[in-house]
Design a protein around this nucleic acid. Structure first.
Lengths: 357, 357
DNA sequence: CAACTGCGAAAAATCGATTTATCGAATTAA
DNA sequence: TTAATTCGATAAATCGATTTTTCGCAGTTG
């Protein structure tokens, strides 16, 4: 019984050392690839490692260094495809370099964001990938700055004076959406956004508006912003459409600047019995798997998740290794997938009616 | 400069000790809540902690114990709402008890699953929540057993002789779906599943079949299983429907046993121009946010994610604390949301095609 | 008054690795 | 032959906590 318990106990570097008839320091050196070890001894160490099934304890190994081989990732949520993919990619890149990724969800709360960051600081993580709830100027980024932490900001950020940033080029993507919609003949478009993410929303809005006005100076762009939560948007949108319908000047297309907005817009269309693209066109920022199997398929801006994750990790590790220089703001190009939810205003149903009546 | 560097360095327990004029052991005891410390000294310690902004280094703190305050979570993927929510919930529960959750995605690979598990074993995690790719008999569970790890298996599992399991009561939910479909008059139903998850699929299938046959002995149930990947399903389903349509005996309803199957079924309907529920009814296992905003809204089985996560953590911590006894298999009840994608076979479109409000 | 009991706190061992300082033997140079 | 290098490896310090052991002092007791 006690014997089994002992067997359960994992071998330490000292067990390996005594089995190989050398010191622990020598074992450590062999495993680290130092070449000043006699080949004969090195072989005995490797044999002992094999025999005992020894593996380095990463926790003990990290004890001595100031920066541990841990990367922290903080996302606003885990429930969406976008952040799910992001975490998955980040994990892969961290693993490639022998780092462990610890991911946490701030649940769209800046307070929680900061708490999580403090905990990661306690762990003395080597670096942090932070996707802030609002933008780059929140308390979390301040905390990182104040404590000299290494990090990258992603997604809902534009540029920062202390940290590198990596995000989708949403202004360019929005411009492309504008070209598509105006090109189809739309002259009255509603843009739906989340006020909380001021900077990102502004970039998307400006990218859209500038291009649209450039192509058609007579275009009318309405904007509906909900401040913090998504729930109020439902009401806002309902009121907006009621008013516009009463006035007889309702928009012929909607561009939603965030995923939940697309869902809310769709369900509002649904409530009113409007069909895409016959009654109204719809484009959403952020793609999702289901968008291509619905009637109709929803047009969307696809963010380059893998590229964002890869570049974020790349720049993060460069900073961890001590690279200096001013912070850089990277923008990764998006793809715009124009699906059937977009048509010309007032067009008659094409074959099958987009959803047969 | 050097001064600033020193300031950057976080204070250790010894810094606190010397500031308070006591030994490190005393500081540790105060922070652990030991009462045998003179109140006066305790106060001085707390003041020093406050002054220096001291926080315990969890890594160093964990060094001495055999089981560290880390919980590992292994999910087949992070991209779906289900596992995203699951990780989010697990993280919350771990945090409540002062543990850190390290989540990793096996990316639907059993080999990777085992590798991740080995890495978590290296970290000497206190326990693991494993959502296996296939079922409870995979190599990962074997590894856990062989190494005496503490763990719970969730989701794609039924029961195990070594580990506690927590999963959705999919048999009961499937029975409810059967009652609904048969009750609506369906007598020819296609069930779509993933062969890989043998046990779970069998439970769902049997739950469905038994109840359906019980209610209507003349009901015909076809089954299309794809083995490992989802991609082949597209072809399988296409062939199946082609054959059935040629034979003039195509099913009037589809019950998909997993989320991606629901998506594939929908897109196949779409390709053929079939509409729910007029041309065919659809129910899917696993709910998603988008299902209630599409035309029509898709009926789905909702898994009790929070309950599964909560119970998994509960039983895991009990085992960590040394509770003995045989492993228990928990089943959590699901909710079935019957939305508009389900109707009577051959029913005519109701007003507006089942979607105008 | 010596021995005993307790209390509170300090000293030291421990966890499992890495890294620096040290040391002995073999080799080379003077 | 002796001193100076060089090489390989070991002993010891270190990281930052926790836990066990030891210790000094005050108060009791026989």
């Amino acid at each position: 019984m006690a014997q089994q318990e002992v067997q359960r106990q994992r071998p330490s570097i000292h067990d390996v050392a005594s089995h190989a008839g050398v010191s622990a320091a020598t074992v450590s050196k062999v495993l680290a690839g130092v070449t000043t070890v006699k080949p004969e001894n090195a072989q005995r160490v490797l044999d002992a490692v094999e025999l005992l099934g020894y593996r380095v304890d990463p926790l003990a190994s990290d004890m001595r260094r100031a920066k541990r081989r841990i990367i922290g990732a903080i996302m606003p949520e885990f429930e969406s495809e976008f952040f799910g993919q992001m975490v998955s990619e980040l994990e892969g890149f961290a693993e490639q370099r022998g780092y462990t990724l610890v991911a946490a969800s701030s649940r769209e709360s800046e307070a929680r964001e900061k708490e999580i960051l403090a905990r990661m600081h306690d762990w003395r993580v080597a670096g942090v990938v932070l996707a802030p709830v609002r933008n780059e100027h929140g308390p979390a980024a301040g905390f990182m700055k104040a404590n000299g932490m290494t990090g990258v900001l992603i997604d809902r950020v534009l540029a920062d004076d202390a940290f590198d940033t990596v995000s989708a080029d949403s202004a360019a993507a929005s411009a492309e959406v504008a070209r598509a919609l105006v090109g189809q003949g739309h002259r009255h478009i509603l843009v739906v956004g989340l006020g909380q993410q001021a900077a990102t929303v502004r970039a998307r809005l400006e990218g859209f508006r500038n291009t649209a006005l450039d192509l058609a100076p007579d275009v009318r762009i309405d904007v509906v912003l909900c401040e913090s939560d998504v729930e109020p948007l439902r009401t806002l949108l309902r009121d907006y459409f009621s008013k516009r319908e009463a006035g007889g000047d309702r928009p012929t297309a909607v561009y939603s600047l965030f995923l939940k907005g697309t869902l809310v817009a769709l369900s509002e269309f649904r409530r009113r019995g409007w069909h895409c693209p016959n009654d109204i066109s719809l484009v959403g920022f952020d793609d999702a798997e289901w968008m291509q199997v619905t009637w109709p398929a929803i047009a969307a801006v696809v963010q380059p998740v893998r590229e964002i994750a890869g570049n974020a990790m790349e720049v993060l590790f460069r900073r961890i290794e001590g690279e200096g220089g001013p912070p850089r703001a990277r923008l990764e190009p998006c793809k715009v997938l124009m699906r059937e939810s977009v048509g010309s205003p007032g067009s008659v149903p094409h074959s099958g009616g987009g959803d047969r009546q």
